[in-house]
Amino acid sequence: MVKAKEAKEWAHESLRGNCSSLYTPFSGLDGDDIDYDALRALVRHCLVHLDQDGLWLTGGIAEFWSLTTEELKEVMRVTIEEARRVKPDALIQVMSSSDTAKQTVELTLHAQRLGADICYILTPYFECAGKPGVLEFLRYVADRTDMPLGYFNSQTTGLAMTPSECVELYREIPALCGLKNGLADAHHSLAIHRLEPGMVLWEANDEAGIRLGVPHPGALGAALYLYEKPGMKLYTEWRELLVQRDFERAEKFAEETGLAAMRAASRRYQAHPARPRTFTHWGAGFKFGASLLGLPIGDYPHSRPPQTAFPADLQAPIRRAYTKSGFIES
């Protein structure tokens, strides 16, 4: 188990690869239960059938805000146990954020005991006093845990740190060793890299960052299972071309295989019609995409409140994109 004081050195060697962010399969009346068998099957699909390098747990796609503390703990336990059983060296990343510092510590300690490799802390999303508040939140968690921590800078919280503020957080907290930039702004990432070249970072829009020359250790938290099947690992092949800076071939590959169309269609999972200018992790949308590929999503395919069901008029273009790509039959 890597200790906090070793975090930054560890990150340079280990914080890399293709890692899928898992959804939570709900079941029962109004999705009040969790289908843990479906969750185990999703873990096996990602780590065994797709041979991915690791997982991202209890994040936005997993609808962490809708899970109780006990559910979050059990999702961690089941997922980590299954991952270690089928692929012991998989990189296990947990988002242990909550709306309270004490609960975030409780969840981080739980992940630490289960053998997770790193926990990510999202910008506090209620009454946060700017960068000083974020710093105190991170310090509170770091002082009470002993493992690598990452910072998730996301516009979904309504408060995003500037590049200089991100670097200041990194330098202030010894356990803080990586940053997921959820702003979909490659120039923001480039500014961070120029201020602190040693900081491990990646972003939602990794193509733009790679084109700008920002080092990208991998797709460390994305729904890669939506674009890959055994024998058709489109996302992995496309991203490898980007890393090799063969941008012309990468663009041609994405167009010819249908990957570009699938990715464009799946952006519907990231914006709710009622909040068109706000980035959204629409859990039901991600699960709809997964269901097209035959992945288990539980018998309640929708999101828990306060999200809504994924409407039929948004499903049709996604289905067409998958059909055209050859991922599913018409």
Rank of each mutant, 00 (worst) to 15 (best):
H188Y: 11
D206F: 08
G218D: 04
A184F: 04
H187K: 14
A208G: 13
E207G: 03
A219F: 03
L220H: 06
H187I: 04
V214H: 14
A191I: 01
W202S: 03
H216S: 14
A223M: 07
L190K: 08
A175T: 07
S189T: 13
N205R: 06
W202P: 00
L224Q: 15
G178P: 11
G182I: 05
E203Q: 11
N205A: 02
D185I: 03
A184G: 02
A186S: 15
W202L: 00
G213W: 08
L183Q: 10
G221F: 03
A219E: 08
C177E: 05
G182E: 10
G198H: 05
G221L: 01
A191K: 13
P197N: 06
A223G: 04
D185A: 13
V214M: 09
H193S: 09
L224K: 09
M199Y: 07
H193V: 01
H216A: 15
K180E: 03
K180S: 00
R194T: 10
R194D: 04
H216R: 14
L195W: 03
H216L: 07
E203V: 02
H193Y: 08
A204D: 00
L183R: 14
N205V: 03
L179F: 05
N205L: 10
L190M: 12
L179D: 02
G221A: 09
A223N: 12
D206G: 00
P215Y: 08
A219K: 02
E203H: 07
L176P: 11
L176T: 02
I210M: 15
A191R: 10
A222I: 08
G209L: 01
I192K: 10
E207I: 12
G218N: 06
E207D: 15
I192L: 14
V214E: 07
N205D: 13
D206Y: 12
H187P: 00
G182D: 12
D206R: 14
G178L: 07
G218K: 14
V200D: 05
V200G: 06
G213R: 12
A204C: 13
C177Q: 12
A184R: 04
L190S: 03
Y225M: 09
D185Y: 02
L212D: 10
I192M: 15
